[in-house]
């Protein structure tokens, strides 16, 4: 694995708390002395956060599809009846 991939893998282990203590201390020391690495690790953290948002977006699309199924399919009439009762004013 080339160095840059090695770094990104180490950073992942470090960020996820999966690095052995001694190795983590060495990595922290590198972070203190290497501003480029520090910046990369920050962007990597951001990448994880954005991937989570993306995943939630996908889950929400799946939820929408299920909702449409429930509110449109002929065999879910009883369910719809039950719900529409709740919103009668």
């Amino acid at each position: 694995m080339r160095t840059s991939l090695h770094n990104i893998r180490s950073a992942e282990a470090y960020l996820k708390g999966e690095m052995p203590t001694e190795e983590a201390l060495v990595f922290e020391a590198r972070l203190l002395t290497d501003p480029v690495l520090r910046m990369q690790v920050r962007f990597q953290q951001k990448a994880y956060a954005l991937l989570r948002l993306l995943y939630r977006k996908q889950l929400k699309q799946e939820a929408t599809a299920v909702e449409e199924q429930l509110f449109n399919s002929p065999d879910k009439e009883a369910f719809r009846q039950q719900i529409s009762q709740l919103f009668k004013s």
């Binding site: 840059s4 991939l5 893998r9 992942e12 990369q40 962007f43 990597q44 951001k46 990448a47 954005l50």
Partner: peptide, 21 residues
């Protein structure tokens, strides 16, 4: 990790100027 690197670098390129980084 190649993909993660790509995503990370896209974020970097698009975020320059964001002070919080």
């Amino acid at each position: 990790f190649k993909c993660l690197e790509k995503v990370r670098d896209t974020i970097r390129d698009k975020s320059l100027g964001y002070e919080d980084f």
